[in-house]
Nucleic acid binder design. Structure first.
Length: 902
RNA sequence: GCCCGAGUGGCGGAAUGGUAGACGCGAAGGACUCAAAAUCCUUUGUCCCUUAAAGACGUGCGGGUUCGAGCCCCGCCUCGGGCACCA
């Protein structure tokens, strides 16, 4: 019987599905392990070979953990709401519900072919009403909570009302005033801020959905607009999101990305008196360098800041307003492109330095951001490069306050040196001066220490159709929550879901609740993906997002696999969401993902043919230098090992039907390049095709064999024959044509040694995701066992178990042939390891000054001193030592011997 | 500009500070075959050499630590990723 992967794979996939082999029970008798993939967005293009990379890696781990006796939860589902699904639906002119449904079906059929051990009974889509009920529920909890900075946690809003009542701030307010007051505290709140408005998508976007001034989806320009939007008070959690990063088993680079995104900075707020047309006003600024306050020569306000209205002198008002208007006109992209240009305008107002009493001019410039700190700064041109550029442009004074620094060409930004021109700070080291100045302003009551974060609240509403409706209605302009009992609030059907600038839900018939109008924007894509890992623990629960029992058993995701592109989006929002639910006691862990592995991207490997200009003749790569040619992308699926299938090429497109070829050695060799995998490059490789040609086990092994999981690498079908050959060889340890070879004779020491080398390697590597080296070890073991002509059950049975996480179908088939009634999933890995006979000798390499010379064999139990004595007794001179003498002998037990010659 | 990574054969990539290049691909030669496919065997970092033995040189560049450095330290170069007027 030859290795017939087609029948084997379809047989076992059907068996697993019919027997629910991978169904996970909430069963506390076994230790639990939760392995999760970032669930996919079902896009219209289907899966290419890059998508399953992470799923294969996590599946191997899940199967390995099952063998080790863990109760493994390994679910899968679809992130189906959100912009991409809706954009795709609009492009194809269909309802997003339908396209989502079709795309999900396609994904599922592709996933099913690869032999994943998902518990499909737990599958859901974020657009299922049963699921988004709990997204809406979570929103209501956030609406009904506030963040208490004293306890540093979220608490029910009712407790805040009690507090206000006790302080006499509540009674006597109108209903509207009470609502407005609470909006300033709710975790989910409606507020007017400057937001990213994307005209092309007809909606606002969160910061992580914008890159370089363009929308991540679609690449449309984004502008800043002041709008009233629903927001999540993520910033309240900034400190906790930052601090608990340390406890997570994530890569340093990803943690660093989140640290940068959260952007903690510890500084000082200082109050400056200002004068304008004889009026006085106090302006608070934020700085991290309060030590440089003696070098302040002007102040700057953000153009959007309300302070500008109050501080502009009548004589300057016209110029200031013109400047603000101009800034407002610019798109985000223009602002970024012009970062280097310096603009600004004088307000006519003056500030008074609280330490020196000196009067300094107040300017307005776009380099100061309204959304950070207080939207106002003290400018120290000698020690800040942005202030320096501004001072040079507008000819403002520059006063150095660090001894000996040169500010003739640029500012001196380093926090080092001795202070000067700085009153009581003179002579101090900069680091000490920072602390001394902070103490000073606090003592004098003109300022206070303050920590700021760059992390902003998340804009949570989208003026789009395909998302969760907000469970909010408006009673006389007051936002009120829908009763929890009335959830889910189902997304209504509408005639046209295309964006028109106004929210599509405004066109829905009877979009009301208790006779009042409902909120018409919908939630963003990240809403549904923020707590899905909790729902998998208890996916059919109608009474709670997750039962206490399920949550306390499964707790958190032990291993989470996905791409780095979610570093500042999903992975921040999920952590925030989890911490919020933790604060209110709904979940028992305050971090959702203990260990995170980022799989790399699979890039495409494009192939080219070279057409001789003006002809329909194509010249092979090696000969193209002799002709003038144009490079043309050719479908990689009709190229094998860079050799073009010429017949397939003629059939590929009508214009190539009569193509002629200039060959080298009878073959047409194509050129190649590494590019992004995309349709337009004709380099997309569909996993279905690989499963048809080589089988799912080969695909799984090959994707892992390409290199480390975390690393990005090009897909190159060239090497796939190698792992396919390995599987065939493995099969031949059991079968020679129709002859079953397995025998019950006891294994020899040499055979056992091979098995144990493999076990050692697999145990050491698999937990580090070094799957490529584990597979190498398999190849070596199978090669050795073939040449030993070993067909012993004692050896082969454990080999099948060890291989099963990687190539489950072939393992399952052979396991059955070995006479086991239960699937290999239930095989207990340690039970199948036969004892290894003690080895008697160790081979030590002997080096002279680090250079390898010869080896000596010594008993394993020999002490270093005995080894040294044996080496010294060896014939050492004159060949190795020459006319020098041995200074010392270094013996590293079990490793190496080095003889130092002087 | 700032913060992370990474640089090893023709290629993908291996190497707890201890025989660099495992394993795979590709390539060359051979066996089996009428032939092909499949399979198996041998060779495959560079230089010197007819060949072999033996040797020398080799992990982006320049230094250093060490008996011994791809790995550790200092200074560069190149590539990839992230952030980017955050005061």
């Amino acid at each position: 019987m030859d290795y017939d992967f087609r029948s084997i794979e379809s047989k076992w996939q059907a068996y697993w599905a019919a027997n629910k082999t991978f169904k996970a029970e909430t069963d506390s008798s076994k230790p639990k392990y939760y392995v999760l993939d970032m669930f996919p967005y079902p896009s219209g293009a289907g899966l290419h070979v890059g998508h399953p990379l992470g799923y294969i890696a996590s599946d191997i781990f899940a199967r390995y953990k099952r063998l080790k006796g863990f109760n493994v939860l390994h679910p899968m589902g679809y992130d189906a709401f959100g912009l991409p699904a809706e954009q795709y639906a609009i492009q194809t002119g269909q309802h997003p519900e339908k396209t989502t449904h079709d795309n999900v079906a396609r994904y599922r059929s592709q996933l099913d072919r690869i032999g994943f051990s998902f518990d499909w009974d737990r599958e859901f889509r974020t657009c299922d009403t049963d699921y988004y009920k709990w997204t809406q529920w979570a929103f209501l909890q956030m609406f009904n909570s506030w963040y208490d900075p004293e306890q540093d946690k979220a608490r029910p809003i009712s407790e805040l009302i009690e507090k206000f009542k006790a302080e006499g701030k509540w009674d006597g307010l109108t209903e509207k005033e009470q609502s407005d007051l609470l909006m300033n505290y709710r975790i989910a709140y409606q507020g007017e801020t400057s937001v990213n408005w994307c005209e092309g998508l007809g909606t606002v976007l969160a910061n992580d959905e914008v890159k370089d001034g363009l929308s991540v989806r679609g690449g449309f320009p984004v502008e800043q607009k002041k709008m009233k939007q629903w927001q999540l008070r993520v910033s309240a959690y900034a400190g906790r999101l930052l601090d608990s990063l340390d406890s997570l088993d994530w890569t340093d680079s990803l943690k660093e990305m989140q640290r940068n995104w959260i952007g903690k900075s510890q500084g000082t707020e200082v109050e400056f008196d200002t004068v304008c047309d004889g009026r006085h006003k106090t302006v608070t600024i934020f700085t991290t360098r309060v030590d440089t306050i003696f070098g302040v020569t002007f102040m700057v306000l953000a153009p959007e800041s309300e302070l500008v209205d109050e501080l502009t002198a009548e004589s300057c008002r016209e110029a200031v307003e013109a400047y603000r208007k101009e800034i407002k006109k610019k798109t985000e992209r223009e602002r970024i492109a012009q970062t280097k240009s310096v603009t600004g305008v004088f307000t006519g107002a003056y500030g008074i330095n609280p330490l020196t009493g000196e009067q300094i001019p107040i300017w307005v410039s776009e380099y100061v951001l309204a959304g950070y700190g207080t939207g106002a700064i003290m400018a120290v041109p000698a020690h800040d490069s942005r202030d320096y550029a501004f001072a040079r442009k507008f000819d403002l004074p520059i006063i150095p306050i660090i001894e000996g620094c040169d500010v003739s060409e640029s500012s001196f930004d380093a926090k080092e040196g001795k202070m000067c021109n700085s009153g009581f700070l003179n002579g101090m080291d900069v680091k000490d001066a920072i602390e001394a100045a902070k103490d000073y302003v606090e003592e004098k009551g003109i300022g206070r220490r303050k920590t700021n974060y760059r992390l902003r609240d998340a804009i949570f509403s989208r003026q789009r159709y395909w998302g969760e409706p907000f469970p909010i209605y408006y009673k006389d302009g007051i936002a009120c929550p829908v009763d929890e009992a009335d959830l889910p609030l189902v997304l209504p059907q509408i005639d046209s879901y295309k964006p028109t600038g106004e929210a599509p839900l405004a066109r829905a018939k009877d979009w009301t609740y208790k006779g009042y109008p409902l909120e018409t924007s919908t939630m963003p894509g990240f809403a549904g993906s923020s707590a899905y890992y909790l729902r998998y623990m208890d996916p059919h629960n109608g009474d709670a997002l997750v039962s206490r029992e399920a949550d306390e058993y499964w707790r958190a995701v032990d291993l989470y696999v996905g791409g780095t592109e979610h570093a500042t989006g999903h992975l921040i929002y999920s952590r925030f969401w989890d911490k919020f639910l933790y604060d209110l006691g709904y979940v028992c862990e305050d971090e959702p993902f203990r260990k995170l592995v980022n799989q790399g991207m699979i890039q495409g490997r494009s192939n080219f043919v070279y057409r001789v200009v003006g002809t329909n003749t194509f010249v092979s790569l090696g000969l193209m230098g002799q002709y003038e040619t144009t490079e043309i992308h050719v479908d990689v699926n009709i190229v094998h090992n860079d050799k073009l299938d010429m017949e397939a090429f003629r059939q590929w497109r009508p214009e190539y039907a009569d193509a002629e070829f200039i060959l080298e050695n009878g073959e047409y060799v194509c050129g190649w390049a590494i590019e992004k995998m995309s349709k337009s490059m004709y380099n997309v490789v569909n996993p279905d095709l690989i499963c048809d040609t080589f089988g799912a086990d080969t695909l799984r092994l090959y994707e892992m064999f390409l290199g480390p999981v975390e690393q990005s690498k090009p897909w190159d079908t060239k090497g796939i024959d190698g792992v396919n050959r390995f599987l065939k060889k493995f099969w031949r340890l059991f079968y020679d044509r129709d002859q079953w070879l397995v025998e019950d004779a006891p294994a020899t020491p040499a055979e056992l040694k091979e098995l144990h080398k493999l076990i050692g390697k697999e145990q050491a590597d698999i937990e580090n995701f070094s799957y490529n080296t584990t597979i190498s070890a398999f190849m070596i073991a199978v090669g050795e066992l073939s040449s030993l002509n070993c067909h012993k059950r004692e050896i082969l049975e454990p080999m099948v178990v060890l291989l099963s996480p990687f190539a489950p179908h072939i393992a399952e088939e052979l396991w059955e042939k070995l006479g086991h009634a239960e699937t290999v999933t239930y095989a207990e890995f340690p039970k199948f390891i036969p004892a290894l006979a003690a080895e008697d000798n160790v081979t030590y390499p002997v080096q002279f000054n680090g250079k390898m010379r010869f080896t000596v064999d010594m008993p394993k139990a020999a002490s270093p001193a005995e080894v040294e004595a044996a080496v010294r007794a060896h014939e050492l001179t004159p060949k190795y030592v020459g006319d020098k003498s041995i200074a010392k002998v270094i013996v590293v037990p079990g490793r190496i011997i080095n003889i130092v010659v002087k």
